[in-house]
Amino acid sequence: MTVRIGGVERTLPSARVGSMGRVPLVEFIGDSEFTNAVAQEMLVMIPEGTEVLLTVVTNALPLTHELSDRSGLPYECVRKKRRPYMTDPLIQDAPSMTLGVAETFWLDSPHAARLKGKKVAIVQDVISSGGTAQTLGRIAERAGGTVVGYLAAFRQGEGALSLPFKYLEKLPATI
């Protein structure tokens, strides 16, 4: 499957994922040209009044960094593993996601403090079921922030989303 964003074209590889069959894979890590093109196109999707972007490691991180660079907004990143330096982190279990893996998300307390009283936009590379977005939203709210929007580079599949997401392009659920 081929996608074209902001004049940059990529043929997406696919991978077999459990009973879902083969799904297209979006990879921003190591692809600066594609990441920059997508970030540039996503700038207009950032809700007015946003004060901080929130994402989760790993693939969405370079995209969020580029959005931060272009918009001038700071960002925070939730981890999927506790790090030894974390002190009193916010911990949030994530539901079983599209890839069939339940996870626990961690946000170190100094990073959580930067969300307090702020209007937060959740940034993802691909939105499918909305489970990761809901988990990030809960973390933002527990930290004292207010979620003002959800955005992703791609929407995968046809399932109903319970969140008002903005995205650039739709990907099929399976290929």
Rank of each mutant, 00 (worst) to 15 (best):
M1W: 06
G6T: 12
G7E: 07
R10Y: 09
L12N: 05
L12D: 04
A15E: 15
R22Y: 12
V23C: 01
F28E: 04
I29R: 11
D31P: 07
E33P: 02
E33R: 15
N36Y: 02
Q40K: 15
M45E: 12
P47I: 08
E48P: 09
E48A: 13
V52P: 03
L61R: 00
L63H: 08
H65N: 08
H65F: 14
L67W: 09
E76G: 14
K81F: 03
T87Y: 04
D88Q: 12
P89I: 06
I91T: 14
A94Y: 02
P95K: 12
P95S: 13
S96P: 02
T98C: 03
T104Y: 08
F105S: 03
L107H: 04
D108M: 11
D108C: 10
D108T: 09
P110F: 10
L115A: 05
L115F: 03
G117N: 08
I122V: 15
I122K: 03
V123H: 10
D125M: 06
I127S: 01
S129E: 06
G131H: 09
T132I: 09
L136I: 03
G137M: 05
R138P: 01
A140H: 01
G145H: 07
V147L: 07
G157R: 02
E158R: 07
L161G: 06
L171E: 05
L171R: 02
P172S: 02
I175K: 01
